[in-house]
Amino acid sequence: MIHFLYFDPGLGALILQAIAAAIAGVVLFSKNLMFKIKSFLGLVKQDDDVFDDINVKDSDIESNASSDDKQ
């Protein structure tokens, strides 16, 4: 752990994260619940076509890796 040398993370910011994470947990939970209700009712809108979701998909890694090999 070398980042202690680097910059001040802010003590308040470190303490706050427990609260921020709890709020985010509630928001995510209700979002997932709403998503389930909406998909049950067939109201799910098409996803954003500019930004994808947070997860790095295996297919992203593999497809690019194999196309690199061909070069």
């Binding site: 003590l11 427990a18 921020a20 994470a21 985010a24 928001v27 995510l28 954003d48 979701d53 947070i54």
Partner: peptide
Amino acid sequence: SKVRKLSKRAMLNMIEGLYDYIK
């Protein structure tokens, strides 16, 4: 010492919450 532990799940919730909002 006041800094409480943040579980991995909690940290990921925080990151994902920010991601969804910003998106």
